Amino acid sequence: MQEQSFQHYLLGLIAVANNIPAIPLYLALCKGRSVAEQHRLCFVASLTSFITMMVAMLTGMTILNFFEISIDAFRMAGGLLLLNTGLGMMNSSQEAVVIETDDSFARILSTAIIPISIPLTTGAGTMSTVILFTQGINHSETLEAKLLGAIVCMTILIYVSFRYSPIIIRILKDTGMDVLTKVFGLITLALGIQFILSGIKGAFPKFV
């Protein structure tokens, strides 16, 4: 497999692990909370996303091998999943989010983990993408370092976008958020189609 660059990994993660769909829910959770609590929510959501991507990187191929799932089959399945995610982003719209929660901060923290971090920020599509990136590493320490660096950078981007989400919302407004979501959706669609094509090519080399 052709060696991939750090930018390839990072741009792929930005497409599928962006937290734009989670920002309205995150802001709804922060309403009425102290600054310290808001920062803690941001940290918990970002840390959960980092752990999710790392688990996929470290154990993904082992799980596939355990269930005897070929990488080409997983490429096609992951591609279909990304197609569904991308279509959902393309058809989404920014609407006011109303949530009902109790006064327990522990309940608020659990909501920061599910569904804000999983699956709105780092869901099944993100985990599939990380696993497929890992398959291309082939035990190369350089490529492992590149993917790890991309995961760390993606986590920082997730943290910053949550931390400064009020400013992002104020600048982009609903229209800008819609456009940004659809752009990421289009990239996710293209990534999904690429995974499907690669899977078909690997599974049926005589017909492609």
Score class of each variant (00 low, 15 high):
A106Q: 15
T121H: 08
S110T: 10
S140R: 11
T134E: 09
T142W: 09
A106P: 12
L132D: 02
D103K: 15
A106K: 15
T134I: 00
T129I: 01
I113V: 15
G125Y: 03
N138P: 00
S140Y: 08
A112W: 08
I116W: 06
T122S: 12
S117D: 00
E144M: 14
L132G: 03
T121G: 02
I118N: 08
L120R: 11
H139A: 15
N138L: 10
I108K: 15
M127Q: 13
T142K: 15
G136P: 06
D103G: 12
G123M: 02
F133S: 00
T111K: 15
S117L: 00
S104I: 01
T134F: 02
S104G: 07
A112T: 06
L109G: 09
F105Q: 02
S117Y: 01
A112F: 08
L143G: 03
A124N: 06
D103L: 04
G125C: 01
S140A: 09
E141I: 15
E141P: 05
P115F: 04
A112I: 05
L120F: 08
F105N: 03
A145C: 06
S110Q: 12
E144G: 11
T122A: 12
T122Q: 09
S117N: 01
I131H: 03
A106N: 14
M127P: 01
G123R: 06
G123S: 02
T134M: 13
H139F: 14
D103A: 09
M127A: 02
A112N: 10
G123A: 01
T126H: 07
V130D: 00
N138V: 03
T111H: 12
F133L: 01
D103P: 14
L120V: 02
M127E: 02
T111I: 13
S140E: 04
E141A: 15
A124K: 05
L132P: 06
T129L: 08
F133Y: 12
T126M: 04
I131F: 04
I108E: 11
L132C: 05
M127T: 02
T122V: 13
T121K: 08
S117Q: 00
I108A: 10
D103E: 14
G136N: 12
L132I: 11
E141V: 15
E141C: 06
I116Q: 05
V130C: 00
R107D: 14
I113P: 13
S104E: 09
D103W: 01
S110E: 08
A145G: 09
I113E: 10
I114T: 15
A145M: 10
I118T: 11
R107L: 06
G125A: 10
F105R: 04
L120Y: 11
P119G: 03
I114Q: 05
V130Y: 03
P115L: 04
L120G: 01
A112M: 07
G123K: 06
T142N: 11
S128Q: 04
